[in-house]
Amino acid sequence: MTFDKIIVLILGVFGIGFTYWFFLMKKEQEIAVTGDSIDIKVEGGYQPDFISIPKGKTTKINFMRSDPSTCLEEVVIADFKIRKYLPLNKKVTIALTPQKTGEFSFTCGMNMFHGKLKVTS
């Protein structure tokens, strides 16, 4: 095997390992909502993508989409039966008053981008 092939092979293995680490071993950073609302930036995903809100209290989640990708034009919080269109560069508020604790996901309309919503007691 020639030197360039060995290098490509090593880089290939490293690339696979890096991809796995980069995308699939990401540590989630939980943001606890202390006030009445939280802003989520919709650009290449959701930022923050892991929020925790208290049970029984109304929390306003303000989505602001600045990403033109049609994939992100809708946000779906299926456990709360919410599917909302997010116009570009316009704030859309979703008020949630969760009645049960647990972890729920919010996704884009095509289910490509994911965020997590944790309801605490």
């Binding site: 980069f22 995308f23 990401k26 290449g44 995903g45 993508d49 033109p68 981008f113 994911h114």
Partner: peptide
Amino acid sequence: ATIPALKHRT
């Protein structure tokens, strides 16, 4: 879409 997605490791 890709650049911010990569920033968020998605």
